[in-house]
């Protein structure tokens, strides 16, 4: 899509997610899910012939940033970037409804007693939105399993933002759809997860600073809005720069994926997730400081975005994890190769 239609897409997504803003619950937002299904955002990057919208990863970037900004309570990254992609790559028909996806290393998989498929035992750990989705795409080695959650035991857990991160216990569960994916998919899965999470982070950072700017212009102390105080202006300018950095890094990584594919964009994705994670901590700190005590309470909505910043920076690889990979790439490149690595031009 062109830059122009990308702007339209972003505005549409901001409107859809903004309308759904609701601090009274942390549960899956079924009504919002209907909206994203109707508007084609739910399977945005899945090819049209597989029932998706055939969008680019840059399109997904615009949508996911908006979802993060408005703390959308739907598994968009999991459904579109991960599960639908993985199932489609494995030649398994993508089921309707919200989906999740995970990588599992410790499952016992045996040919099904009754014919097609497999009997699967083991636990899928901290599956995003596990309790809320009908099915989970599981990558076990190079095998893809489509696990129907109705047959799984659910042990509920949450992340810092109280988003579901549930353990799904499989006890000789018969999985009918089992297929093998090319090994590149194994490489691609964590990169997709990291980019998706980084885009959400960039959005949540934007949402937090937007709230702090608004609060600063409304909150009066010393006889004037605190926005007039240089100390507040300087702090929020720093936070604004962090938002800009997270946005630039994640949008650039998405573009890189559109140009070269996920595997070839691994350096960009690693740098983007690390940089967005770094921005997250700084933005959460500054926006809470600007809000004062009220932002530290359950009654104020700031927590919806700041708890997501804290949760997501550690999910799908923290700054430490991705910077370690970036550092290894720099060492491998050496003194003469560092600038070519940064510019992507050998």
């Amino acid at each position: 899509m062109s830059a122009e239609s990308n702007t339209e897409l972003r505005e549409m997504a901001e409107s859809v997610f903004g309308d759904a803003w609701d601090s009274s619950t942390d549960a899956f937002d079924a009504k919002l899910w209907e909206s994203v299904e109707q508007t084609g955002l739910a399977r945005l990057t899945l090819p049209e012939e597989a029932g998706g919208s055939g969008g680019t990863v840059s399109d997904a970037a615009a949508v996911l940033t908006a979802a993060g900004q408005f703390a959308a309570r739907v598994p968009l990254v999991e459904t579109d970037l991960l599960a639908a992609w993985l199932l489609h790559a494995a030649g398994i028909e993508v089921p309707s409804g919200p989906l999740s996806a995970t990588v599992a290393g410790n499952l016992t998989i045996q040919p099904a007693a009754g014919g097609a498929g497999a009997d699967v035992s083991g636990t899928l750990r901290r599956v995003p939105w596990g309790r809320a989705v009908g099915a989970v795409a599981v990558l076990a080695g190079e095998q893809v399993l489509l696990v129907d959650t109705t047959g799984a035991g659910v042990e509920e857990g949450v992340n810092l933002a109280e988003e579901p991160r549930d353990d799904l216990v499989l006890n000789e569960l018969t999985v009918r759809h089992v297929a093998v994916v090319p090994s590149v998919a194994v490489v691609e899965f964590p990169l997709r997860a990291a980019l998706g999470r980084a885009l959400l982070l960039a959005g949540a950072a934007r949402g937090a600073v937007a709230m702090a700017v608004r609060y600063a212009t409304e909150r009066v102390q010393f006889g004037r809005p605190i926005a007039k105080l240089q100390a507040i202006q300087q702090s929020l300018a720093l936070a604004g720069a962090e938002v800009a950095a997270a946005a630039a890094a994640t949008a650039a990584a998405a573009r890189e994926v559109d140009r070269r594919g996920f595997a070839e964009a691994s350096f960009a994705i690693a740098a983007a997730k690390a940089r967005a994670g770094e921005a997250a901590g700084q933005v959460a700190r500054i926006t809470h400081q600007v809000h004062g005590a009220i932002g530290f309470t359950r009654e104020h909505d700031l927590r919806l975005v700041t708890t997501r910043l804290w949760a997501w920076r550690d999910e799908d690889g923290s700054e430490a994890y991705w910077n370690d990979r970036v550092g290894a790439r720099a060492l491998e490149a050496g003194a003469d190769g560092l600038w070519p690595l940064l510019t992507g031009t050998p």
């Binding site: 650039a252 690693a270 740098a271 940089r275 770094e278 991705w322 550092g327 060492l331 940064l342």
Partner: peptide, 14 residues
């Protein structure tokens, strides 16, 4: 130290 180096490179890239 590899992470520290990586942190610099990620920020350069951004």
């Amino acid at each position: 130290r590899r992470r520290d180096l990586g942190g610099l490179v990620s920020r350069y890239w951004t």
